[in-house]
Nucleic acid binder design. Sequence first.
RNA 1: GGGCGGCUAGCUCAGUUGGUUAGAGCGCUUCGUUCACACCGAAGAGGUCACUGGUUCGAGUCCAGUGUCGCCCACCA
Length: 921
Amino acid sequence: MATQQAGRLDNRKTAGGKAAGAEAPRGEMPRAYEPGAVESRIYEFWESQGYFSPIFSDEAWEKGSTAGDREPFTIIMPPPNVTGELHLGHALTAAIEDALTRWHRMRGDPTLFLPGTDHAGIATQMVVERELAKEALTRQDLGREKFVERVWMWVRKTRHRIDDQHRKLGVSCDWSRNRFTMDETPQLAVRTTFKHLYDDGLIYRGTRIINWCPRCQTALSDLEVNHEEEQTSLWHIKYPLIDGAGAETGEFIQMATTRPETIVGDVAVAVNPEDERWREIIGTKARLPIIGRELEIIADAEVEKEFGTGAVKVTPGHDPTDYEVGLRHGLPIINVMNVDATMNDEAGPYAGMDRYEARHRIVDDFDAAGLLVRIEPYTTSIGHCDRCETVVEPIVSLQWYIKVAPLAARAIDVVRSGQIRVLPERYEKVDLNWMETIRDWCISRQLWWGHRIPVWYCDACGEQFVEIETPSACAKCGDADLRQDEDVLDTWFSSGLWTHSTLGWPRQTKDLELFYPTSVLETGWDILFFWVARMIMLGLYNMHESPFSTVFLHGMVRDEAGQKMSKTKGNVIDPLTIVTEFGADALRFALATNSTAGNDMKFSREKVEAARNFCNKLWNAARFVIQKLEGRPAVALPAGGTASMHLEDRWIISGANALARDVNQLMTDFHLGEAGRQIYDFLWGEFCDWYIEAVKVRLSRGDPSPLPVLAHVLATGLKLLHPFAPFVTEEIWQNLQPLLPADEPEALMVAPYPDMQAQFDDRDAANAMAALIDTVRGIRNIKAEKRVEPARFVEAFLEVENEELRVALASRSELIEALARVRPVHLVAPGEAPSQGAARAIVEGVTIVVPLAGMVDLDAERSRLQKELAQVEAQVERLEKQLANSAFRDRAPEVVIRKVEDDLDAALAKRAALKASLDNL
RNA sequence: GGGCGGCUAGCUCAGUUGGUUAGAGCGCUUCGUUCACACCGAAGAGGUCACUGGUUCGAGUCCAGUGUCGCCCACCA
């Protein structure tokens, strides 16, 4: 089906050359990075090149197997509701998933990021009904068929909006495989799964007490009910006891309720069998006031003796606990409400009233009859509809269920055995705990929009049967007059199949063979139960294999005050307005680096602004490099290593190399935020602040030796950063690529991700450059403190005991002079610097002496140095003590002991230097 | 009633398998029109890592407990 779109052109083979007919876009490089002028052009370039589709070798594609090839990397995008607009949660999802996707793609894995949208049963139906309401119409006015048609019209309109918003965020998903939960294949997957489950006895229809939303007028699963603590009352009431003949004895039984409106549905009064107070009246009767019904006094262990009077009214029709009690005692079920939660005829005088009006009237009537004992303020948890927040009513109803325990058992196995890893780990326990205590899943919804339940009823013979394709006649009696079940399935039923229905199941497609099981399932922790757990259960059921190997959960994006964003609160931020203002990269980078897996984050414009500034900083560094290259391509770095280069060159190349190693490790461990921050620190703090500044010294006198290094390090940085900021890095790449050595690909998006290269690992350069940087900072500090005008050059002496370091620094003295604005710099042995009237500072390995005749307050200088000396002495003492500790020597690893020894040496050297300085004052 | 998470600089947050001087951004102070960048640069101030106890040669990090804020799950009227 999708063979064509799968695009088998191998980037790595064609790297360096231009794909046929495609001219890579290149914009001018203005002083500031302008995302608005870049993003759509770059996105179209990527898409037109087919880069979003996974790439396999010909053999792998023919075989439909990746044996011997690189493992494919697959992420199926959590499908946003088709009704919605993207919010920041989607943007976070996109930022994380696309970063993982791009990283894997650049590593050379055949990579698939599959997008889609969810039909979102109740939510979509509500939106369309609201639209209809504007025309003074209801769905009933239209009828089922017309209404569903109307929803489809709506869906066709909104679906592309979501896709376009994703494009604006820069996600590299394979649009040729875009899916919708109501597409033909997912529909088939739903019916097939339903039939299999039904045939296996795992789907059944039954009458039970369920959660009913009176506004949506549908049953809800337990998960779709949100319980909230609310301030209400506990009404203490009493019922008269009656004797065998039905006459009132003059005694009463007192109890309490939070729901007086259900009194009219009472069928019994229950007490604990062990309760001395009530033992004698068990088996006798009471009369339900107003209604007049006789209520048996029953004993049930479920009743807590300690609560109130120890007696409780029993309303099996409107309370889950009472329903259970009713079942145990064979009590009748009386439903006192209509589907919209108004009272029905069973409610006698209250019939037709809203449930809350009935509540107050019943309380009033009890009061008038002297049966209301007291009203106590009370806090209790009340269930609300997940969609519309209406208070949910427990009612008894005929619904379809999945018997989940057997499915959950297998899901528990794969999670517990580590076949599925849950990150952050703490959610594994949450997931397991939920699956271990799982109850049957009510899957039928009294809606019109969704997957219709594939069950048919034959009124002629009473047969009920399940078919994948619409049957024309009853399988049993042949009658053609069949009736399909009116209900649709819970939206999450089709979502639960998403990992394989998107790949073509139940058909045996190539995609299914190549991409199932998928790699990572990334989503917010809020849908762990709704979606992830059910995908594991249904994936195992249909495919006999876990649908993914890693579950990676992110937190919620909240507003600046930490509030959940919601339409009703009016604090929702549209990611697209942020993109327009700051750029998609800024938003993505801010989201990815300011969050930690599983933890919620507070969103603020300041964070995006900081990320925007970073993009701009990189942009300008690139402008500098490109400008200095003057149109002449840089040569490649010497393959043998960097030994012949200047200190700062060796240092920055080694730094980029170490960064590549660390970033790959962090990405492997799903520490995306830390990876992004390290790239930021390197590019800004090392490349821009030090390397580029250092390199100006040579460039300004026409020495081209830094150019290959600038090109190499910038290219490496762009590659490393690309998964986090795809647009700006690609745009820079388009300008830089012609100036790079010949083997660099035409698009950064498909460039190989950098990795550790042993020949560039240069610890010596790292150490010497660290000393140089510390020295420059020390000199700047002295100049700032002594109020030497920054632009003024002064003479400086650097006392360096270590010969090697002194040689290294001497070789780059021009650097120190330029960066610290001192001249000349004298590299000398300890004690050789002038002693009079000089400011001093000691950094590791270097004593800085800046003669400032007449500008130095000797006493202040002395006391400062003495203070520093005291600190160093304390440090020496501590380190010596530690080294003398035999337990430490025995148990600490060798590297740590070495480190402590080195630290002690450094501290001793510093102490000596400080003492010498004090003597010289 | 169970369970989980946060508590680190004025604010928002990092801190990977415990390793010795705990970091960043914003804000703050002082300075700077150095030819990539003021969406910038330089220097600096600012932290008893919520508390108590324990384990360890060594604890922001591990264990136990306390406080506090928040969240999830659960049929106590």
